[in-house]
Design a protein around this nucleic acid. Structure first.
Length: 848
RNA sequence: GCGGACGUGGCGGAACCGGUAGACGCAGCGGACUUAAAAUCCGCGUCCCUCGGGAGUGCGGGUUCGAUCCCCGCCGUCCGCACCA
């Protein structure tokens, strides 16, 4: 008997699977399907442990569902457009395409040894014209359907990446990729009209019961629905065209507390007043302010009284001043508000600074002032009389008060109830080269003209140069020159490309027919959609997942997806990260330097470098190059094999939490797999011996428990059960027939996690064919019931003894046994029990 | 500020619907095998003491025969959003 050698085992079984075409997915309406998808990777050039964990989980599910008899679709592709390819072109002179395809080849070569049950025949890359050409067709269909629009808008401009960003791509006032502070620019851009679907995107979240509540909550907040009153103040002393000032409020019940109106520095009225030097100076000051979190938090509320007045809608004699205020956002509501200092903290801060009146609407007349420097925000549940009723109206605070206040105002012709969303349209234009060209032509005669479908794909040139900053497509000498699809005259192509999030918003649908000459094939999409289990990182909770939900709706509206695919992902699982300890040493200058795990020798006493330099062990955080705490999957596979890497990332933590990679854990996993291997060979070679009924029962229990744990995404628990079964096998006589049986069961249960070793064990102990093709085992219910149970006996809630009884014994039998028990009698100390609680097959509690 | 999640041995984590807290793994300790080491196998393992017990799931209360689990009030950690009117 030799020893466990994954380097020999793993390629051999991978070849066997390939030969059997085991993972090729073909539509078969006679069988139920299961579509497993992991979020596809960006081809950076190397896979990392996070990928290994993500794809291992997906693979586990795919293999499990296949064993359960489902026709499984488990594809892989590449989210291949994006800036790094352009940066490589700039830095190294390689073409973005060559760089990207090399990276794809390298990562595919790293992924194949993992033994994933992927249908590689469906592989796609979004930078392939075969893919992005179909995306252009989708764009044109969406344009026809009114889902796309072109408009001038103030947009987020990333000055480093030199491109526009969507709102979702601005984090903390900075570009999500470059980290540069984002500037505001007005540009004409293409937009997907995602805000038209805000209501549906919000409502449908309630039906996504197999999505994490956290993700649904995040999307709800992002969509940001609010109900309020929009009305117009009449102005006094405003420039022509500004006779009315529209404001929006979610708290019309506090209108009696109004003491000023305020407009955003970007509001048209503010701009109209810019002739006034004081206004011009103030607006300039506001523009100079940054938008990052720190700046906003410390920024003082500042304003300027315009001298304009507005009339309170409830009282023609009551006038309020109009201020320009730096804390009013132009892109929410109407960019103008009424200020109610008593019941809004921001308004109060502002009012205290500029000495504006503070009117407490809810205080009883004559009562002491309640509002000092903290605003009183009436809680929604509190019922307080609205103290300044008009013509006897009496209103409450809270939801009812808001509704009543809206009704009250509408009845008097003051504004109307309005539902607003925070969600903005999705600006998709990017001033970048390495993206999907927007299939639009600008004609001097006809204007903006969609490209003809027959001319798709609009291909990227392969001879672009990257010696100038900005969009290489725009700089290309000939690419943009074309003829107008409408009049045939000379025209120029749109040189903006699409946001790369467009590419990832429909790839799941493309996988159902990746080579089709249309975006999708209805028969295929109808069979394979929806994705039954989607797995990826929580970082995509808003961007990618919201855009995909929009796209599924748009593709349905344009006839590319069936109605049932309106929500593309039936179940979503967000997995945790792979972390690793960080190591640092102090240099001579006292500064600490990060060290790679490979440089560090670790033992119980601590850690040091090979030369003895002490190493400080830091927190276990996400693997990153900057912290140097990266473990390369290639190294792990070379040393221990793919099965060890797969088992370890599944075993140590619940899948939704972070898992800490440790060298000791990897070593221990490898040893365990070696033990399983040895048990199989030892069993195969042992002479026959007496059977072991207990082991048979243990195997059936393992089937029951592992199945439940996989279904419940509790992979760490499933693995704990497999350790138990392994222990039970090891304890049984080597030649017992039960051992062969239990090892076959073990192989089947391990197959989704460590598929190569499972095949090896399966073959060694007489399994037929490939375990990857074997049906999932079924637990024999009759072997799961225990004949006897041991009941713990509590006296006054404290465990004192236990009694063994036949399973299913009735309460009176158990009572009699318990009262005879010596330990129980001693614990009772002669007292007679007041009550005896018997929970059959569980516990007994004697109450004195 | 708003919203959400979480808090259990030295560590990662189990505990079904309120029923033996600490499954399983790591690290640790002890033993077997060996000339020795590696490898492997077996055992111990929350804490405290007087070996019979006592305490124990962030802290303080409550409900219950019985609470890691339910309720009330704190403390702490993490995540998301945020001058959104």
């Amino acid at each position: 008997m030799s020893r466990y050698d994954p380097r020999e085992i793993e390629p051999r079984w991978q070849a066997a699977w390939d030969e059997a075409c085991l993972f090729r997915a073909e539509r078969d309406p006679s069988r139920p399907k299961f579509y497993v998808l992991e979020m596809f990777p960006y081809p950076s050039g190397r896979i990392h442990m996070g990928h290994v964990r993500n794809y291992t989980m997906g693979d586990l599910f795919a293999r499990y569902k296949a064993a359960k008899g489902f026709n499984v679709l488990h594809p892989m592709g590449w989210d291949a457009f994006g800036l790094p390819a352009e940066n490589a072109a700039i830095e190294r002179g390689v073409s973005p395409a060559a760089w990207t395809y090399e990276n794809i080849a390298a990562m595919r070569a790293q992924m194949k040894p993992l033994g994933l049950s992927i249908d590689w025949s469906r592989e796609l890359a979004t930078c392939d014209p075969e893919y992005y050409g179909q995306q252009q067709a989708l764009f044109l269909d969406m344009l026809d359907a009114g889902l796309v629009t072109r408009k001038a808008a103030v947009v987020n401009w990333d000055p480093v990446d030199m491109t526009v960003l969507a709102n979702e791509q601005v984090l903390d006032g900075r570009g999500w990729r470059s980290g540069a502070p984002v500037e505001r620019r007005e540009l004409t851009q293409w937009f997907f009209k995602i805000s038209d679907m805000a209501e549906d995107l919000l409502d449908a979240l309630d039906r996504l019961e197999h999505w994490p509540e956290k993700v649904r909550t995040m999307q709800r907040n992002w969509i940001g629905k609010s109900r309020g009153l929009q009305f117009a103040f009449e102005t006094r002393g405003a420039p022509a065209g500004f006779e009315r000032l529209e404001v929006y409020t979610t708290r019309p019940d506090t209108l009696w507390g109004a003491s000023f109106a305020a407009i955003s520095p970007e509001h048209p009225l503010a701009r109209a007043l810019e002739g006034d030097p004081a206004v011009a100076a103030f607006l300039a000051e506001c523009r100079a302010l940054g938008t990052s979190e720190e700046e906003l938090e410390t920024a003082e509320k500042k304003g300027l009284d315009t001298g304009i007045r507005v009339v309170h809608p409830f009282d023609p004699a009551w006038q309020l001043p109009v201020w320009i205020a730096n804390f009013i956002l132009m892109d929410y509501g109407t960019g103008a508000i009424f200020g109610c200092p008593a019941h809004d903290q921001r308004d109060l801060d502002f009012a205290r600074k500029y000495d504006l009146p503070v009117i407490d609407v809810f205080a009883a007349p004559g009562s002491a002032a309640r509002v000092g420097t903290v605003a009183y925000v009436p809680p929604k549940s509190e019922r307080v009389e609205f103290l300044r009723p008009v013509a006897g109206e009496r209103l409450m605070t809270g939801e009812a008060a808001v509704d009543a206040a809206i009704a009250f105002c509408e009845a008097r012709g003051i504004g109307r109830g309005v539902t607003r969303f925070r969600l903005r349209d999705w600006g998709l234009s990017r001033q970048r080269f390495w993206g999907c060209p927007i299939p639009i032509v600008h004609c001097p005669a006809c204007g903006v003209v969609p490209e003809k479908r027959a001319n798709l794909p609009v291909r990227l040139p392969d001879d672009a140069t990257f010696d100038k900053p900005g969009n290489a497509l725009d700089h290309h000498p000939t690419w943009a020159a074309t003829t107008c699809p409408a009049c045939g005259g000379p025209a120029r192509r749109e040189t903006d490309t699409m946001d790369t999030f467009v590419d990832s918003s429909w790839y799941y649908a493309r996988f159902t027919a990746p080579r089709a000459a249309e975006p999708t094939v209805m028969a295929e999409a109808d069979y394979w959609m929806n994705v039954d289990q989607y797995i990826g990182g929580i970082e995509h909770a808003i961007l990618h997942l919201l855009y995909s939900r929009f796209f599924a709706r748009a593709m349905q509206a344009t006839g590319h997806l069936p109605a049932k695919a309106i929500e593309p992902f039936d179940a979503l699982f967000t997995q945790g990260m792979v972390t690793h300890e960080t190591y640092s040493t102090r240099g001579a200058d006292g500064r600490s330097v990060w060290r790679e795990p490979g440089e560090v020798e670790r033992d119980a006493a601590g850690a040091r470098l090979a030369d003895g330099t002490p190493v400080e062990i830091g927190a276990s955080v996400k693997m990153s190059k900057s912290k140097k705490n990266v473990v390369d999957p290639d190294d792990i596979i070379a040393r221990y094999g793919a099965d060890t890497a797969r088992w370890f990332v599944l075993s140590d933590s619940p899948p939704e939490r972070d898992v800490e990679w440790t060298a000791a854990g990897a070593e221990a996993t490898f040893k365990h797999l070696g033990r399983v291997w040895r048990l199989a060979h030892e069993t195969a070679e042992a002479p026959p011996a007496a059977d072991d009924a207990d082991l048979v029962r243990a195997a059936h229990r393992a089937i029951r428990d592992v199945t439940a744990d996989i279904e419940g995404f509790a992979f760490n628990k499933a693995i704990a059960r497999l350790y138990e079964l392994t222990g039970a096998i090891a304890r049984a006589p080597a030649g017992a027939p039960a051992r062969r049986f239990a090892l076959r069961v073990l192989a089947q249960l391990m197959a989704p996690m460590t598929p190569h070793l499972a095949e090896e064990v399966w073959a060694t102990v007489g399994g037929e064919g490939l375990v990857a093709a074997a049906p999932w085992p079924v637990a024999d219910a009759s072997l799961l019931v225990e004949a006897n149970v041991v009941l713990p006996v509590q006296v006054n809630g404290k465990r004192r003894a236990e009694v063994a009884v036949p399973a299913g014994s009735d309460a009176s039998t158990i009572e009699a046994l318990v009262l005879q028990d010596e330990t129980v009698r001693r614990a009772l100390g002669g007292a007679s029990p007041r009550r005896l609680i018997v929970v059959p097959d569980r516990i007994v509690n004697v109450v004195v």
